[in-house]
Simulated scan of single mutants.
Amino acid sequence: MRTDIFARLDREPEPPKIEPPRMSRHRIALFGGTLAFYLAIVIAVLIGSWLVTLDWKVMLFRPYQQWPGIHAFLDYYVVLGQRGPTAVMVACWLGWRSWRQHTLRPLLTLGASLLLLNLTVGAVKLGLGRLGPHYATQIGSAELFAGGDIFPSGHTANAVVTWGILAYLATTPRARRYLSAISAVVSLGVGLTTVYLGTHWLSDVLLGWAAGLLILLGLPWVEPLITRAEDWIFAVREQWRARGRAVPSVPVAAGGPRTVLVPQRAGADAADEDPALEPVAAGSRTAAAAAAAGARPRAHTVRSERTPITPAGSRRPPHADRTPRGGTSPARPVSGG
């Protein structure tokens, strides 16, 4: 009786699957409001408004010097927003779910969201080129188009998308509510931690939250592509399986004899093979005689069970001066008296 964890999981019922979210009016309204907030932050930074002044005030306040006791903890906590470790952790969990539910949708959704994150956030980062607080050159300046890559905050946007995807793929409404709250707390904490450490401006974090939320809200538009990609992957897998089960056949010229190959024993037993086991051309006299007599290849026997065969006669070559054993020898001449 199996008592391991896999046996128990096999007996557990599968949780009910929730249909992928659709772009309802409520979701479209949230998407539009988040997009307006995103554009407002970008414009506020471009024109050097009060938001840039707030950035400098927070930066000069230096939170990491005001509360040094939590610095060590926040150095580890901010890892929850790094793309590599978080993507590996979430991919392991979603891979387990994909195996349990026999679907690739969780992994494909994670891959699509991270791809959108890299394209959108990366393009804005490189396009605006804002420098971070530690590399700022002029007090009160927005530090744009200076070769930087921190606006919006990648840590914050990645935390929103990576942990929010768990709530997006939840299989029950209760799990979706709990995971939404957990992902919101983690992403808020990661964003504020970057401000505490002085690696990002406050406006970077605000734009990172908006960027990650836009990706999560817009994922239903990508669901048809995810479904098509999953169908294509399963179709390719079935083709490879069918190709592996197919038996290769040898092409034969039209009208020519077909060769029937019979397996032969290798090694020292090859000398004891029956001529009937040799390749026989269909239509020949040997094949016709074997078919008429109903001949079958003899069964292979173990060497110890075979009857020893003694060759008839002597193996010695004939000699003119020798007489066969058992014959009458000629008289020898007698010499002397």
Rank of each mutant, 00 (worst) to 15 (best):
P220R: 01
L214K: 00
S203Q: 02
E223R: 01
L206P: 02
L217R: 01
V205P: 06
T194K: 10
R228L: 09
G198R: 05
S183D: 08
R228A: 15
V190K: 00
T193K: 09
G208Y: 00
T227R: 14
L214V: 00
H200W: 09
G189P: 11
V185Y: 12
Y178K: 12
L197E: 11
L179R: 04
L206W: 09
L188A: 15
Y178F: 14
T193W: 07
V185D: 10
L202K: 06
G212Q: 01
T193A: 13
L206V: 11
A184V: 13
R176H: 08
T193Y: 08
L225F: 13
W201N: 03
S203R: 08
W221Q: 10
L202I: 11
P224R: 06
I215H: 02
Y196Q: 08
E223T: 14
G208P: 06
A184F: 15
A184S: 13
V185P: 10
L219F: 04
L192Q: 12
G189L: 10
A184R: 10
A211R: 02
L206Y: 09
Y178A: 15
I182N: 06
A184K: 10
W201P: 01
Y196K: 08
A181Q: 12
S187P: 11
V186H: 07
P220D: 09
G189E: 10
T199K: 12
G198I: 01
R176Y: 04
L225W: 15
G191Q: 01
V190D: 07
L213I: 10
